[in-house]
Amino acid sequence: MKNFFLVAFVVFSAIGFNAQTKNQIKFTAKIANRNSDTLVIRGANNFTQVIPINKKEIFAATFEAPKGFYMFTDGKESSNLYLKPNSEVNLTMDAKQFDETIVYKGKGVDESNFLAQHALKDEKFQNEAFSKETAEFAALLEAKKKSDIESVDKGNYDPEFKTALKNSFEQFNQYAAQSYESVSKANKLKGKPSPGFDYENFKGGKTKLSDLKGKYVYIDLWATWCGPCRTEIPFLQKIEEKYHGKNIEFVSVSIDKEKDHEKWKKFVADKNLGGVQLFADKDWESAFVTSYGVTGIPRFILIDPNGNILESDASRPSSPELQTQLDTLLK
């Protein structure tokens, strides 16, 4: 998912499901422009269901799963669904328009369709409301919460689903408000000199941001424990390869805790990570990290050759927008 306001994710993380009661689920998916030949459905209590594509180019499986919230992924993007007893779920979508084209048909799919549409609603809110002034943002957020509750109440949904979603809306508001503050802080940094750092380099010694002056600098704030961070690594490696020899440095700053220092070194070596690999001095509390108001990772930052901030919350390596921007800057 492109948006980070996925209510189902909040619910999924918060309540899980009843692992004692398992129900048979029939699942099929027809995906145009697929990113992978395998789908994976994950849930609480380490639930994992791998679904390979068959000869008819359909993802199909019958499995047992407790009622509750789940996430499916094609290895590149993900979305959420809700499985009920004896559901027969038929998913269709186009992976090139991942979120916009998800449609569930079959038995027991109303909740999953609600989640798919609600994710789009959340993304639209993120794109529109975050550009507003503080008072207007607060009003829009409160109006959204009221609308969300009304939309759940009027639907013929599973009672446990309704309860979980309503509980999540308050968490959504809190998280949105915090994220708004973070984004506002980040936006105010554009065009200003970037805060500096002086961090341990995997190859030895230390590296300062000022050492890279004269080049564009694309910074990846990440950690070995961060799943979305690891997902971006193959895309970052391709970006590094494409712009090798150009006037740009790719810098990855790990905010792993000190106790995981050796884990970081092993990860960098085992994955043969390129670019400049650095280890922050105080993980989340490192001055460089807090100066950018970072509340979640991965976080990407783009700095110009003069050391000024071009993008305090830059596009991810997996986003086509990043290559478009770099092509313009480095032509």
Rank of each mutant, 00 (worst) to 15 (best):
F279N: 00
F98T: 04
A269C: 06
N3I: 03
S87N: 08
N54Q: 05
T21C: 03
F9D: 10
V217E: 01
R299L: 02
A95M: 12
F69Y: 15
F161D: 01
E181R: 13
S254K: 02
Q20K: 15
Y104M: 08
E136Y: 04
Y82G: 04
H244C: 01
D283Y: 07
K257R: 13
Y216H: 11
D99I: 15
A138E: 11
N45I: 03
G205V: 10
N35K: 15
Y175A: 13
K188P: 02
S291Q: 12
L330K: 07
S312F: 14
H261D: 02
K265N: 07
R34L: 08
S312M: 13
A139N: 11
K190R: 14
A135W: 06
A29W: 11
Q171E: 12
I301R: 01
E142G: 04
R230V: 01
I248P: 01
V103M: 07
N80A: 14
E240D: 05
F130C: 10
K257P: 00
V276T: 13
L310E: 08
K67C: 05
K55T: 06
I219R: 01
F5W: 08
A119E: 13
I297W: 01
T101L: 09
V10T: 08
F27Q: 01
A129D: 08
A61C: 04
K132Q: 14
Q174E: 15
S13Y: 05
I255C: 02
N86C: 03
F172V: 01
C229W: 12
K271A: 15
K154L: 06
K203V: 03
K242I: 08
K208S: 14
C226K: 03
A65I: 09
E258L: 11
R299P: 00
T73N: 14
E232M: 04
G191M: 15
S182Y: 07
K238I: 07
E150W: 02
F63Q: 03
S131F: 13
I53P: 00
G274R: 10
I239V: 15
S131C: 04
I297T: 01
D283R: 03
G227H: 05
E133H: 10
Q277G: 06
I255W: 05
F197W: 11
P193C: 14
G275F: 11
V11G: 05
L209A: 04
A186R: 13
F114G: 00
V289A: 07
I51E: 09
N167R: 10
F197C: 13
L221Y: 06
W264Y: 08
K55E: 14
G16M: 12
L83H: 09
Q325H: 14
F267L: 06
V11F: 06
H118E: 14
S112R: 07
G274K: 15
T328H: 11
G293R: 05
Y157R: 03
